[in-house]
Amino acid sequence: MKRFLLLLALLSLPAAAAPASDQINLDIGTPPVVVVKHSLAQRASRLVRFYEVGIIGLGYDGMVKLRDGSRLTLPQRQIAEKLIDNENPDRNSLIYALAEGQGGKALEPAAREAQVKRWKEQFHSGWWIEDAKGNWSQKP
């Protein structure tokens, strides 16, 4: 009977609300976050060449996408695709590390939303961003 009452008491407690994305600290310095940010930073200068000419852009989900590869030679396309293939897993790892560093997997959606917002803010004017419908436009 005591177990039943305890269970009943626990079930009647309000559920903890998931934190909003504005409550996620994107600047925490846990070792996993630092390692992934370092990896992303090392690749950034090579990605910039492709952002500036509109070959790649920032997808709606925060991942880097090949936007227009028609002007690339085969070796250039391979370089761009290799960069994207290395960048996106690191971006997902960063989001996971941010969530883990602040409470666990349950915070992953809020961490993703906050980090994607930051990436969009950091994107330069003239670089291409994808909207929710899959349409591309240049950042003003």
Rank of each mutant, 00 (worst) to 15 (best):
E52W: 02
F123S: 13
K82N: 06
R67Y: 08
G126T: 07
E100Q: 08
L13W: 11
L98D: 05
L10H: 01
F4T: 11
T73I: 01
Q78N: 14
K117E: 10
A114D: 05
M1N: 03
V48C: 02
E100S: 00
I84Y: 09
Q115R: 14
P140F: 04
L6E: 08
I56G: 11
A41Y: 06
K2A: 06
L11G: 15
T73A: 01
A15E: 12
R112I: 09
L8S: 06
G69A: 14
I28K: 14
F123L: 12
L58T: 11
K65W: 11
A15F: 13
A80C: 08
L66D: 15
L74I: 00
S137T: 15
N88Q: 07
Y60G: 02
A99N: 00
L7G: 00
I95D: 14
D27G: 05
S70M: 02
S39D: 10
M63C: 07
L83M: 10
R91G: 09
P14F: 04
T30Q: 05
Q102D: 10
K37M: 00
P14A: 07
R118L: 12
V33P: 03
D85Q: 12
W136R: 12
R67V: 13
A80T: 14
Q122K: 15
D90I: 01
A20K: 15
S12W: 11
S125K: 15
W127M: 12
L8V: 00
L26A: 05
K105S: 11
L72A: 10
N25M: 07
E130M: 13
A114P: 00
A110L: 05
W119E: 11
P32R: 01
V35R: 15
E87F: 03
E87L: 03
I84Q: 12
A106Q: 13
P75N: 14
N86H: 03
L58E: 15
S12V: 06
E52T: 02
W136D: 13
S137D: 11
G101D: 13
S39F: 03
H38Y: 01
I28Y: 07
R71L: 01
S70H: 07
L5Q: 02
R3G: 00
T30G: 01
I95W: 07
A44E: 15
F50R: 13
W128S: 13
Q122M: 10
A111Q: 11
W119T: 02
S12R: 05
N135L: 02
A9N: 00
E108A: 09
Y51I: 12
M1E: 05
L58P: 02
Y96L: 04
L11M: 09
W127F: 12
L107S: 02
N86S: 01
E113R: 14
A15T: 08
K120F: 05
A110T: 04
Q76T: 04
Q122A: 13
G59S: 09
T73N: 03
K139I: 06
D68E: 15
A20C: 09
T73C: 01
A41E: 14
G62N: 10
I79L: 08
E130A: 11
I55F: 06
A110W: 11
K105M: 06
W128D: 09
K105E: 06
F123H: 14
G126Q: 14
